[in-house]
Amino acid sequence: MNHTVEKVKRAMMSMQRQSWEQGVASQALIESGYKEDAVLLAHDAVVRQDSSGRLGVIGDEKAVTDAASNGGPVLFAYKQTGNEEYKEAAERMANYLLNAAPRTENGALSHVNHLTQVWVDSFYMAPPFLAEAGYYEDAVAQVERFRELLLNKEKRMYAHIWDDGEKKFGRADCWGVGNGWAAAGMIRVARTLPDSMKADKERLIGYVRELIEACLPYQREDGLFHDVLDHPDTFVETNVAQMLAYAIFSGVKAGWLDARYLDNANRMRSAAQAKVDEYGFVRGVCGSPNFNRSGTATEGQAFFLLMESAAES
C-alpha cells in the first residue's frame, strides 16, 4: 500500500491550488509523516497570506474559514523550523477568525464574506485550527454554533448550507462530503482539547458517534455512499467513505468509538482503495471545481492519505 500512498500523494500535490485544498493537503502530509512536504506547503500558505490574515489566498477569494485549514500546518511548520514568521502568520490567521471575520446572529463564523452563510465544510476548516492554536473554548463554541444551525434533528445529519440572512437553509441536502467534513473536524478538535475539558471532549465525541450512526444505514453493499446520503438517485461517491473511515479509525484507536464500527470502516477503505487508478487519482469523489459531479479533487486525495494513516497507525 505504500506505493499506492506515494502515487496518491504525488497526484494530490499536482492538484492543490485553492486555500482549503492547500490546507487539507498539508494536514494529510502531516498525519502521513511527510513532514518536509508539509512545511513546503505551509510556507507557501504564508507567502500568500492576505492583509486580513487569511492564509493561502488566491485572487478575490470570498471564503472566510477555508484559509484557516492552513493554520494548523503553519503552526506545525513553526514547531519544525523555529521560524517566527510562521508563528506570527498563524497568529494573524487566528486574530482574523476571532476578531474580524463575519458571523451569524448566533456567533457562528460565516463561510463566505459576501453573504452571511454557514457551510458544513467549516467544521473542518476553522475549529481544528482554533484548538491547535490554544483557543479551545472558541473551537468548541464554533462547533456548537455550526451544529445549532446545520443539524437536521430528524435525520441526525447535517445540511450543507444555512443562510442566516434568509433564516433558512440555502441547501438542505445532507451532502455526503459535508457530513464527512463535520465528522473529521470534530475528531480533530476532540483530540486536541486538554484533559481539563473532558466534558467538552466527550460531548464532541458523542456528536461524532451520533453522526456515524446516522450515516451508516446509507452505506451501500459496495462500501460507498451516494453524494447526498439519503438520495439514492445521486451519484455514487468515494470521498465520504474515506472521511468517515478516517473518523472511525481515529476514534476507535483513541478508545472513543466502539470497535463494532471497524467492519463498516474496513469496507469503506477497501472500496476507496479500489478507486485509485494507475496515476494515483482517487476516482469517483465529489469532483472539482464545482463539486456537482463524480470526478477528482484534492480533498479526495488528501482523505485517502488520512484514512490510510489512521488505519495503519
Rank of each mutant, 00 (worst) to 15 (best):
E61H: 08
V74L: 04
P102I: 12
F76T: 00
L97W: 12
E105G: 09
Y78P: 01
T104G: 08
L98R: 14
A108P: 02
V112C: 00
E61S: 10
L109C: 09
A94Y: 01
A89N: 12
A67V: 04
K62D: 09
L98S: 12
S110T: 03
V74A: 11
S69C: 11
Y78F: 14
F76K: 00
N95H: 15
R92H: 14
E84Q: 14
L97V: 05
T65V: 04
A68D: 14
A63C: 04
E91V: 13
R103N: 02
R92V: 09
N95Y: 14
L75E: 02
G72P: 00
F76Q: 00
M93E: 14
A67G: 11
M93V: 11
T104P: 01
A90N: 07
N99E: 15
A90D: 03
T104A: 11
E91G: 07
N106R: 03
E85V: 13
D60P: 04
V112Q: 01
N70E: 11
P73A: 04
E88A: 13
L98A: 13
K79W: 06
R103E: 02
R103T: 06
E84K: 07
L97G: 15
Y86Q: 02
L109R: 11
S69P: 03
Y78S: 00
A101L: 10
T104Q: 07
Y96M: 08
E91H: 10
A89W: 05
K79G: 08
M93I: 11
S69T: 14
R92S: 14
A100M: 13
N70P: 08
N106L: 12
P73W: 01
G82T: 13
V74S: 04
A101M: 07
L109M: 05
D60L: 04
K62R: 10
G71E: 12
V112P: 00
V64G: 03
E88F: 00
A77V: 01
K79H: 12
V112S: 01
S110Q: 06
S69Y: 07
A89V: 08
D60R: 07
P73C: 03
N95A: 15
G72R: 07
A90W: 00
H111N: 01
K62P: 06
D66C: 06
T81D: 11
M93W: 01
Y78T: 01
V112F: 13
K87P: 06
A63E: 02
A100T: 07
A94S: 15
A68R: 03
E105N: 05
E91K: 15
F76G: 00
D66M: 05
A94N: 04
N83W: 02
Q80T: 09
G72F: 05
N106D: 13
A67C: 13
E91M: 13
V64M: 03
D66S: 06
E85L: 12
T65L: 08
T65N: 10
K62Q: 10
G107T: 09
A100L: 14
K79N: 07
N95E: 12
M93S: 14
P102W: 03
N83M: 00
G71S: 07
N99Y: 15
A68Q: 09
S69K: 00
E85H: 10
N99I: 08
E84F: 02
A108N: 06
N106G: 06
E61L: 14
E105P: 02
A63S: 09
Y86D: 02
G72C: 09
G71P: 02
T104K: 07
A108V: 15
